[in-house]
Amino acid sequence: MAKLNNDQVGAAIWIAVGVAVALGSLRYGLGPLDSPGTGFLPFLAGCAIALLASIGLTLSTLKQRKGAEWTPILRGVLWRKPLLVIAALCAYALLMKPLGFLLCTVLFIGFLLRAVEPQRWPVVIVGSIGTALGAFAIFNLWLKAQLPQGPWGF
């Protein structure tokens, strides 16, 4: 059997999403048509997603028969870099409260400057500390955003 192409894979996932949304909406109640219930619109949206994805699946299957194949989405790109960025973002979100804004930001910027496209250490140190202090001054001191404080009070 020929390998599925990108649109076929995408459409299959969307069909599952659409069906899940439509089924999930049923527990909120669709209500009668003259007084639609809480689940009415999400149910319609779920059905629309599944229907459109089915159309997409049919069209991409026809294309597959004409030779449209799977195109690797990560070929020729430095895919480890986006992965590092996502990991850094998740770590920042989880650590910003326990560590506090300043320390967490220094580590975050320092990591990105050093790990993604490696910069010289002086650039990393000055860049991370300078950016953290600058952002703290603008957002915390000037704009009064309540950024999280760590156990050290900053």
Binding site: L89, C90, A93, M96, K97, E117, A145, L147
Partner: peptide, 30 residues
Amino acid sequence: YPILFPMILLFCLIGAYSLNNSVIEVLIMV
């Protein structure tokens, strides 16, 4: 760009967090 992009990300993180001072909003953004 390698120097610029960490700052863009930081602004996004601060922007999402300061909406409701919530880490959930940051995770939603990610």
